[in-house]
Simulated scan of single mutants.
Amino acid sequence: MLTITRDLYDRIVAHARADHPDEACGVIAGPAGSGRPERFIPMLNAARSPTFYEFDSGDLLKLYREMDDRDEEPVVIYHSHTATEAYPSRTDITYANEPGAHYVLVSTADTDATDGTTPFQFRSFRIVEGEVTEEEVEVAG
């Protein structure tokens, strides 16, 4: 199960809506070994695409060095789908290389309004060696 604060949940959704119609992406880091998502790190989708996301390699290297210096790890890796349901695509599964992370997907496919009144999907998955398992999301606070 992924337990996430209301603030982090809202920030992921806001980022997904702000970058629509392109996919949004980012990381929530937490203390190494804790499994607690704490530090929200929105990233730039270097692909600038409505159907694909890609972390900029330089930004990603900088992020991993920073997390290492802070004794953190990626607890949540998130991105949005702009035209499909919030479920990992074959490409998402192929690029999932953090077996300990929660992979969160937000679908903005039904989001036309920016006022937050239209529905969306917020789902979390574990992806280990190509195997996708959906998990419950608990929003705390």
Results as ranks from 00 to 15, higher is better:
E66P: 02
I127F: 01
G26F: 04
D10A: 11
P21T: 02
D68H: 14
Y64P: 02
Y53Q: 03
T117R: 13
Y78E: 02
S49E: 03
F120P: 01
D68R: 15
R36E: 15
L61R: 14
T91I: 13
T94R: 15
P21G: 03
F122P: 06
F52I: 12
G35Y: 04
E72V: 08
G30P: 06
D110L: 14
A140Q: 15
R48N: 09
H15D: 12
R126V: 00
V76I: 13
V137A: 00
F120A: 06
V75H: 00
S57N: 08
S57L: 10
E138L: 14
H15C: 01
N97R: 15
S107Q: 08
D71V: 10
S89G: 04
T84H: 13
P37Y: 07
T111S: 06
K62W: 12
E23Y: 00
F40W: 11
L105W: 10
D71E: 09
R70D: 15
H20G: 06
R48S: 07
H81N: 09
A109Y: 09
E23A: 01
L63Q: 06
M1W: 08
M67C: 07
E54T: 02
H102K: 08
I4N: 00
T51I: 12
G30H: 04
D56T: 02
A83R: 12
E135R: 12
M67D: 08
A46K: 15
T108E: 05
E73C: 12
S34A: 05
V106A: 02
A29E: 05
V128W: 06
P37G: 12
A47T: 01
T108G: 00
D69V: 10
V75L: 00
P88I: 03
Y64R: 09
E23N: 05
A29L: 09
A140L: 14
G116S: 07
R90Y: 07
E138Y: 11
T114N: 10
